[in-house]
């Protein structure tokens, strides 16, 4: 997993509440059996005027010039400003894969849906929760002038604005540790293999029916 320490990046504002994972990456692209290739179809239904399908040449598709990510001033954005309940809907990890591949390293919102939030951390993407008031301020500043960039400092748990204001955010210690070090969850969990095995011995005695062999 890629590490996340401190980054400064251009900000793109997506001023909509309840952006769901069907919007982030529509289902037709979920037919892929790979982990890559989703970035070009991020927000496909908003980004393009026609209906997208997997494997097509996206460079010739008509763009929706009104959609924020298609505006010249937001090209190369690495920070996505979003509204409440971002990432609601399905559990598809293709959503963080698409955001990451497009180039976003962090999404800032006032709240996230639980599964999406969790999936971000597995992919080196940092979801940052700020208050509504702080978010309002960032949206205003971002829309006011071109080239608006924010610094996200995970170690200090701070978002810093160009004018020097700093907003702190919460992050769970274990997730922070994994992101900063770029650690693989599975490897870490397997360090507890003995504990898992002894749990199984206990659980098997208490609830043997859970452990029955499955015949085909």
């Amino acid at each position: 997993m890629q590490k996340f320490t401190t980054m400064t990046g251009l900000v793109a504002p997506l001023d909509r509440a309840n952006v769901d994972t069907d919007q982030i990456i529509p289902k037709q692209f979920l037919k892929s059996i790979k982990r890559t290739g989703f970035g070009v179809n991020l927000f496909d239904e908003w980004r393009y005027l026609d209906e997208g399908y997997p494997g097509q040449d996206n460079s010739v598709r008509p763009l929706n010039t009104e959609f924020v990510l298609n505006q010249a001033r937001y090209q190369g954005a690495q920070v996505l400003l979003a509204r409440q309940n971002f990432g609601c809907g399905s559990s598809r990890e293709h959503a963080p894969w698409a955001l990451d591949e497009y180039g976003f390293r962090t999404v800032i919102s006032s709240s996230f849906a639980d599964i999406f939030f969790n999936n971000c951390f597995k992919n080196g993407l940092l979801p940052v929760v700020l208050s509504e008031a702080e978010l309002d301020q960032l949206f205003k500043e971002c829309e006011a002038g071109e080239g608006y960039a924010l610094t996200i400092d995970l170690a200090a748990q701070e978002v810093r604005t160009p004018s020097g204001a700093a907003f702190s955010f919460e992050v769970d210690a274990f997730r922070k540790h994994c992101l900063i070090k770029g650690l693989d969850d599975i490897g870490l969990t397997l360090q507890d293999a003995d504990a898992i095995s002894s749990f199984e011995v206990k659980a098997r005695a208490a609830r043997p029916w859970v452990f029955n062999a499955l015949a085909r």
Partner: peptide
């Protein structure tokens, strides 16, 4: 769960 967790459950 997401796909990384599917892998995590399979493995652990």
């Amino acid at each position: 769960i997401g796909t990384s967790e599917v892998e995590h459950v399979l493995a652990t």
